[in-house]
Design a protein around this nucleic acid. Structure first.
Lengths: 144, 144
DNA sequence: CCAATAAAAGACTTAAAACTCTTTTATTTA
DNA sequence: TAAATAAAAGAGTTTTAAGTCTTTTATTGG
């Protein structure tokens, strides 16, 4: 469904959203450990998301990654679009360059429905709603 | 959603299903042209599907790929499973090795729903139902 | 049984994704 | 203002997916 890069990105964003609840910044080492990802790899990914304005960071002692309040309103769909583009949401399921209602591939309509469902689901999943849940072991992000 | 290999596989299977309607065999060159894929690449893919029993082939003059009647009852879900495995249908959306109702990732339930929808949709799409539609330009498989 | 045909098989190359390592830059605090 | 800290940047490597090329094997019709 997503690239590995994108999976790491989503996990990291949810992780930081949780930790960033009270405004604290969180370092890349802790993030990497928390989501079980290679440190330098997730660093690159978060740098990229930072440039695109989806997350904030500060260098130096007590630095790290965090969210300004507004950015917590971004959704997982926004993260996916930033990393993997919109192929998942709008591309043809069979990989055809041109595929539309007017000139559909054989499974165009069925695909359109599930693609829309996926988009709506991810669009509804705002980062704010992940500020709870991790600490009380309801959910997990670093299981191997 | 699918690997390119899997996209080619699905397109080829639908294409052959259509051409195989009256029992004729269809050569790899025609398939490659019909679905706009590299000839040797789709050949390998169909060899693989052949070994797994999802499609039949015969060498020599008038040889080619075709379906025995029973194999037309395979679904696109079967093709996807044969090529990409069942990760799409049963894997965790965030790539976690262990993710279940008992120990869910933060978006487990939402993902389970769309994964099930995708599976049901692809399971319902039997190859038999693609034996019409291509010829009268209702659908297309080789658009660039 | 021979020549032509067409898939099977295997070895290979290319391209993209995933991941690593080192150096640089910014920030803080003593 | 110097030392420590932590992200940014850049240049790599490794691995996997995608695609190509050549040789072999099976089948058929003359």
């Amino acid at each position: 469904m997503f690239s590995k890069t994108c999976e790491y990105a989503i996990r990291a964003m949810i992780f930081v959203a949780h930790k960033s609840k009270d405004g604290t910044k969180i370092g890349i080492k802790e993030i990497a450990k928390g989501i079980d990802s290679p440190e330098h790899f997730i660093a690159k990914i978060l740098q990229d998301l930072g440039k695109k304005g989806l997350i904030q960071s500060l260098k130096g002692p007590n630095g790290g990654f965090f969210f300004e309040n507004e950015t917590l309103n971004y959704s997982i769909a926004d993260v996916v679009t930033a990393i993997d583009g919109n192929k998942l949401f709008s591309g043809c399921g069979l990989g055809l360059k041109e595929c539309s209602t007017a000139k559909p591939c054989p499974i165009h309509n069925e695909f359109k429905k599930v693609r829309d469902d996926i988009f709506n689901m991810l669009q509804a999943a705002k980062l704010t709603q992940f500020t709870d849940g991790l600490e009380n072991n309801l959910t997990f992000l670093n299981r191997k």
